Amino acid sequence: MTSTVPAHRLFKAIALESDIIIPKAAPHAIKSSEIIEGDGGPGSIKKITFVEGSQFKFVKHKIEVLDKENFTYGYTIIEGCALMHTLEKISYHTKFVPTPDGGCIFKAIRKYYTKGDIEIKKDDLKTGKEKARGIFKAIEAYLLANPDA
């Protein structure tokens, strides 16, 4: 995805200050985000709680990579409803690439680890990607509306 928001701001909002920014930017989807183990760096575990009425209640993810200089963030969902009893985990590796116009390109690689030989339905993946895109766009809009955030 592309954004007019500079890479360093999006990286900071999503990787470093997500516990503050995401519930403010996407109150329709995220109730809270908190570190439940660690200091926020690699090895830390975060819990994201979704709003009531959401398809999911919560997810826990483990931070694998946090590279502030290269705007790279990697984490693995290790627990929660999003795993749908068919997945062991979902790994994400994201990178915010600055563009000449001052914005950035957000690149994300997702890897799904299924339990046994279970196949994932493409519709389930599409729904998850659409929800993630919606939260990304909400964060982007929040940052544009709040230049000091």
Score class of each variant (00 low, 15 high):
I14F: 10
A15G: 15
L16Y: 00
S18R: 00
D19A: 06
I20K: 06
P23M: 10
A25C: 01
P27D: 09
A29K: 05
A29E: 07
S33P: 07
S33G: 06
E34I: 06
I35S: 09
G38L: 07
G38A: 15
G41W: 11
G43R: 10
K46I: 01
T49H: 04
E52C: 00
S54D: 14
F56C: 13
F56L: 05
F58A: 08
K60P: 03
K62N: 02
V65C: 12
V65W: 11
V65Q: 15
L66F: 15
D67P: 02
K68P: 12
N70A: 02
Y73T: 01
Y75E: 07
Y75K: 05
I78Y: 02
A82Q: 13
T86V: 10
T86E: 09
K89M: 09
S91M: 11
T94V: 15
T94M: 10
F96V: 04
F106M: 13
K107G: 07
A108V: 10
T114M: 05
T114F: 04
K115P: 14
D117K: 11
K121I: 09
K121C: 03
K122P: 05
D123F: 15
D123S: 15
D124V: 08
D124R: 03
K126E: 14
K129Q: 05
K129M: 06
A132I: 07
A132T: 12
